[in-house]
């Protein structure tokens, strides 16, 4: 086969298939909810009816009696705290996902591309981190750093990057030997150029899927750590710590119910979106079944199941 031939046969990168995700109603619903929460996260401080920390209202008053969603044990407005909670959690969750993805992709690409002892060492480290249940490891890290929301974010990054490293490594390993990549190398591309030009486009799709699903996991982890008292500290308006505040006041059901629903809807939105993206990137998950004759399977990227979430 000629080198030119090999080059023209380069498959279209998985990211080119992403737009078809909008055919899925799940994706549309997920995106709509996610965008709504993002808008709240950005703008909430400007329009919430009360400052989130103001203890100026009657204590433990139920929803509808003067305030939309009631007040907590310190006379703070649950609705205002709920909306402000979005600005606390969502930007941090997005940031930590991006950070984990960048770290993981770099580690995975280096391991897969260079192989040898580099690969061995990096993958051992990855396995080691993945052997811990995420919450337990994050808890230890967060506790050692000292309880604070930012330390919780660091702890979450520490436990989140390995999944990206694994996926990237296996994709890079698979691609390294493909004809068009080898041909590119023979045509004189440096390893780094080749990694960027030939390999990167095929890694982007799966990593984007993983990251989208991971936003939900990040929100769950951050609010879980805060619930345990290892994340956000009082009086920060944060959903997990709002729920732990409900432990002392069970009869005031509104204190814990609404933050829980907030977490649920944010996580759900990103999970819907991520799931639809996975279908778009990995066509095998949707191929029509033919009862007669074996359907030829299109090339597939293997995506791991999501692991380890609180």
């Amino acid at each position: 086969m000629s080198l030119d031939g090999a080059l023209t046969r380069r498959p279209r990168g998985a990211w080119l298939r992403l737009p078809r995700v909008w055919r899925s109603p799940l994706a549309v619903v997920g995106a709509a909810i996610a965008v709504a929460w993002l808008v709240v996260a950005v703008s909430a401080p400007a329009w919430v009816p009360y400052p989130p920390d103001a203890q100026q209202l009657p204590r433990l008053s139920p929803p509808g009696e003067g305030t939309l969603l009631g007040t907590d044990a310190l006379g703070r407005d649950v609705f205002s705290r709920l909306m402000t909670g979005a600005s606390t959690t969502i930007p941090l969750a997005l940031g930590l996902v991006v950070a984990s993805a960048v770290i993981g992709v770099v580690v995975g690409a280096v391991a897969g591309w260079f192989g040898g002892w580099v690969d061995e060492a990096l993958m051992r480290l990855t396995d080691l981190v993945m052997a811990f249940p995420t919450v337990i490891l994050a808890m230890v890290v967060a506790a050692s750093l000292g309880p604070s929301l930012y330390n919780a974010v660091i702890a979450a990054v520490v436990v989140s990057w390995p999944q990206y490293a694994r996926v990237t490594r296996s994709l890079v390993l698979g691609l390294r030997t493909l004809n068009y990549v080898v041909a590119g190398r023979l045509l004189g591309r440096s390893p780094v150029t080749s990694l960027v030009v030939d390999v990167a486009p095929n890694v982007v799709g799966p990593v984007v899927v993983l990251a989208t699903l991971d936003v939900g996991a990040a929100v769950l982890l951050l609010s879980g750590l805060s619930f345990l008292g290892l994340g956000a500290q009082p009086p920060t308006a944060e959903w997990g710590s709002m729920i732990s505040g409900a432990l002392a006041n069970f009869d005031a059901w509104w204190i814990g119910t609404f933050p829980g629903l907030a977490i649920l809807t944010v996580v759900m939105a990103f999970n819907f979106l991520g799931d639809a993206l996975r279908d778009a990137v990995d066509p095998t998950s949707r191929t029509e079944r033919t009862a007669v004759g074996v359907a030829s399977a299109p090339q597939s990227v293997e995506l791991p199941v999501e692991e380890d979430r609180p």
Partner: peptide, 10 residues
């Protein structure tokens, strides 16, 4: 997907 999205502690 909803099962995956539920905060366990809540």
């Amino acid at each position: 997907l909803i099962g995956l999205s539920l905060p366990t502690f809540w």
